[in-house]
Simulated scan of single mutants.
Amino acid sequence: MPLEQLKAFLEKVKGDSNLQEKLKAAKSPEDVVAIAKENGHEFNSDHLSQLSKEELESVAGGVTLKYKNWCYCTAL
């Protein structure tokens, strides 16, 4: 179920420029989880790594997040 929550959140992000900006400012996977929770989606940072690159590109709408060695990137 949490993976479906993550996908639903990323679909919401695709159409919401305010959420995209918040995610771009995220400094860690935990920040992403907190932003998602604020928007009614429950998952943990481990779920971020469970999506394939293709899944991320198809739903995230060009969001790029970086934190040290961690990167969540999608094409614009």
Rank of each mutant, 00 (worst) to 15 (best):
M1N: 04
M1A: 06
M1C: 02
P2Y: 11
L3S: 05
L3N: 02
L3P: 01
E4G: 05
L6S: 03
K7S: 02
K7R: 09
A8S: 14
F9V: 10
K12D: 07
V13T: 04
S17V: 13
S17R: 15
N18I: 04
N18F: 12
N18K: 12
N18P: 00
L19E: 02
L19M: 09
L19D: 00
L19F: 03
L19Q: 07
E21D: 14
E21A: 15
E21P: 00
K22N: 12
L23V: 02
K24L: 05
K24S: 06
K24H: 07
K24V: 02
A25M: 07
A25N: 12
K27W: 02
S28K: 14
P29L: 03
E30V: 07
E30I: 13
E30L: 06
D31N: 09
V33H: 05
V33Q: 11
V33M: 11
V33T: 15
V33K: 08
A34N: 14
A34P: 00
A34L: 12
I35V: 14
I35D: 02
I35R: 14
A36Y: 06
K37Y: 07
E38C: 01
E38Y: 02
E38V: 01
N39M: 01
G40H: 08
H41E: 04
H41V: 05
E42H: 04
E42S: 09
F43I: 12
F43H: 04
F43D: 00
N44F: 06
S45D: 11
S45N: 14
S45L: 08
D46I: 12
H47Q: 15
S49I: 10
S49F: 07
S49D: 12
Q50V: 10
L51D: 05
L51Q: 09
S52Q: 13
S52D: 09
K53T: 15
K53L: 09
E55D: 10
E55V: 04
E55I: 05
L56N: 06
L56T: 14
L56K: 14
S58V: 01
V59W: 11
A60Y: 03
G61H: 02
G62H: 01
G62D: 04
G62E: 05
V63K: 07
K66W: 05
K66C: 08
Y67L: 05
K68H: 08
N69P: 00
W70M: 10
W70C: 04
W70V: 14
W70F: 15
C71F: 07
C71I: 15
C71M: 12
Y72C: 09
Y72P: 05
Y72T: 03
C73W: 11
C73A: 14
C73G: 10
C73P: 00
T74Y: 00
T74A: 15
A75P: 00
L76K: 10
